[in-house]
């Protein structure tokens, strides 16, 4: 618990702005409810009208927010509804189901081997979720905290890889990995993560670590902690927000990745979920609507759940990343 204490108090001090304090942008929204004092009766009158005005503004705000939320979430609610809609109702052109069926989900698992795909995906996702934050924070520690000649140059070289479109390296990588016999294995989607965990993540970690006060580390250094210990026991526990952010990013990118598996997987036993959805639903075209929609729902439930559980910390983390970026 000491760690969380440290996080709350000493982690990037300049970022305390994130903790729901003064929010200047409300100025950008017209709210004229200042009622400067006057005569007692008058001010009373004014107070009341100001309050009424405030109430109107509130109601207007809620209506606007609700309309936006409904608009943005409706397609996904719709997907859920369609996944439990019996086929005849869909054929009849109904938008919302009048009775429910779980047939879409049953068929998904019985006809399409979904459990295997799910497990395949979990292996890749689980590996990346753990390896990516660790690997990128490890390397970022070198760029943020250690002093060595050539550091800036190496860092510039690492960052410059962001400019290279993925599709440029995709084809030679595919040829390289297949010459290593890595097709139909999870390796192409996992092992590269160990090597730095992505330039952008290293960048985010480096920026975040620079905001952590040096004193703690210097104290540990005097106590004889080596660089590895200083990274693992001092810096890492202070990086929880960004660790979480990178981990969820890793989850999202490997969970939803249909592009890379397209290259590496030819054996249906090795398919991942996202690729399966792409292949059997988009390319082959599943005939039954509820099965297609169930596939979509099944793909979306876990990311949505992860986001719901971690949203508060995550939005902060995104903000940290964004602010520093």
């Amino acid at each position: 618990m000491k760690n969380t204490y440290l996080t709350e108090n000493t982690a990037p001090t300049e970022n305390s702005v994130l903790t729901e304090s003064a929010a200047p942008a409300e100025h950008a929204v017209p709210t004229e409810n200042a009622a400067p004092g006057g005569h007692a009766a008058l001010s009373n009158e004014r107070n009341r009208s100001a309050r009424r005005q405030q109430l109107t503004v509130r109601i207007f705000q809620y209506i606007l927010l609700t309309v936006l939320a409904v608009f943005l979430c409706l397609p996904f609610l719709f997907m859920v509804f369609q996944s439990v809609m019996p086929e005849p109702q869909f054929q009849a052109g109904q938008i919302l189901p009048t009775s429910f069926t779980g047939l879409g989900y049953v068929k998904l698992f019985s006809e399409h081997n979904y459990l295997t795909y799910f497990l395949n995906t979990l292996v890749i996702v689980g590996f990346n979720v753990i390896a990516m934050p660790l690997a990128s924070s490890f390397c970022a520690y070198s760029f943020a905290r250690l002093k060595w000649r050539g550091k800036e140059l190496v860092f510039a070289c690492v960052l410059s890889t962001l400019m290279i479109p993925g599709v440029v390296t995709q084809i030679p990588l595919f040829l390289m990995f297949s010459s290593w016999g890595w097709t139909n294995t999870p390796w192409p989607l996992t092992i590269p993560t160990l090597f730095g965990g992505g330039a952008i993540n290293i960048f985010l970690f480096r920026q975040f670590m620079r905001g952590i006060p040096m004193e703690l580390e210097e104290a540990a250094k005097i106590d004889g902690a080596n660089a590895f210990r200083r990274w693992f026991s001092i810096t890492l526990p202070l990086c929880v927000p960004i660790l979480l952010f990178v981990a969820v990013g890793a989850f999202g990118s490997s969970w939803g990745d249909y592009f890379q598996p397209m290259f590496y997987f030819t054996d249906p036993k090795k398919f991942t979920l996202a690729y399966t959805v792409y292949k059997i639903v988009v390319l082959d075209g599943v005939k039954v609507n509820s099965v297609a929609m169930a596939a979509g729902v099944f793909m979306s439930v876990l990311p949505a759940l992860v986001f719901f559980l971690l949203q508060r910390k995550l939005i902060d983390g995104i903000m940290v990343g964004a602010v520093k970026g």
């Binding site: 943005l72 979430c73 397609p75 996904f76 719709f78 997907m79 999202g252 969970w255 939803g256 249909y258 996202a274 959805v277 792409y278 639903v281 988009v282 297609a292 929609m293 596939a295 979509g296 729902v297 793909m299 979306s300 990311p303 949505a304 992860v306 986001f307």
Partner: peptide, 12 residues
């Protein structure tokens, strides 16, 4: 909607 995988939202 941003966290829904692209392949799921594309399909939808």
């Amino acid at each position: 909607p941003v966290v829904i995988p692209g392949v799921a939202s594309g399909l939808l």
